[in-house]
Each structure stands twice: as C-alpha cells, then as structure tokens.
Design a protein around this nucleic acid. Structure first.
Length: 144
DNA sequence: ATTCTAACA
DNA sequence: TGTTAGTA
C-alpha cells in the first residue's frame, strides 16, 4: 500500500494531475514522494489517494496550493506526537507556521529519527476529513 | 523513451 | 498551468 510503485507519469495518469502540477504539490510540501538514488520520484497507492484528496479539496473549496499549505502548517504536530519541551525548543515547526512540519529539517529533536511519511501528522491529510478526526482526538469531548 | 530542474512567450 | 531547454 505504501510501497514505491509508480513513476511520475503513471501517478499523473492515475490521479488525473499533470506531471508539472504533481511536482508543484511537492514543492509546496503537500506530498512527499519516494526518491530513487537517481533522484527520480516514486509514488505509492497511498500517495495517489493523497493527491486525489488534495485535488478534490482545491476544486471544492476553490483554494490555491498556498492556502492548503497554510492549513497543513497549522496541524498541531506537537500535540499529536506529544514531543517534549526540549524538542519544541529545537523545532522550527513549533515556532513557525509557514510550512507543514514535515518540510523542515528535524535535526535536534525527536522527529530526527522519525519518517515523516509514516508519521500521523503527515498522514492526517491522507484522506479528506482525517484532519478533523485527528483534532477530535486531541480536543476534550464536546457536550452539547 | 523518461525524468529532472529551471525558466519563460 | 503549459512548455521548452539541456541533462542524466
């Protein structure tokens, strides 16, 4: 399910997104494809789902890539992975909300030995609506 | 033949 | 978003 299977041309065909736009998604930090030694991209089935989710969100809400990037930047990763105070001091994502946490270098904190592709934070946008579900877990049950 | 980055009529 | 240039 999450194995590097498709080249960018196949991924473009499966998702209905042009190759060029696929690379733009990546530049905006919306998707993290696998990379071969040759620097060539490889996409998994989960990546395809994620790309479809991004496209649907853009179409339905008339958003641009930058808007989506901002939304993803606001995902409270620190609460999701419960990192320590020390980790947060050394985390750019905790201070800045300009980019999704997974696009930053995680050199001096717990995310250093974490594969962002496998992280719940990154995957909270794997399916549309999953961000909402993730936030529900974090917030106290709402009575009413 | 395909993909990569970067740049632009 | 498309496309083209010059590589690998």
């Amino acid at each position: 399910m999450d194995k590097p299977k498709y080249t960018i041309s196949v991924a473009a065909e499966l998702s209905g997104i042009s190759i060029h736009t696929l690379r733009m998604y990546e530049r905006e930090g919306l998707i993290i494809p696998f990379k071969k030694e040759s620097n060539q991209r490889r996409y998994s089935d989960r990546d395809i789902d994620r790309i479809r989710c991004i496209r649907e969100t853009i179409n339905e809400h008339k958003l641009g890539l930058e808007a989506i990037r901002r939304v993803l930047s606001l995902i409270p990763c620190w609460a999701i992975i419960k990192c320590t105070e020390k980790d947060r001091e050394n985390c750019q994502a905790f201070v800045s909300y300009s980019k999704p946490c997974w696009v930053f270098e995680h050199k001096n904190n717990t995310c250093r030995d974490r594969d962002c592709r496998e992280c719940e934070v990154y995957q909270s946008f794997m399916h549309c609506g999953s961000i909402k579900d993730k936030l529900k877990e974090l917030l106290p049950p709402n009575k009413g």
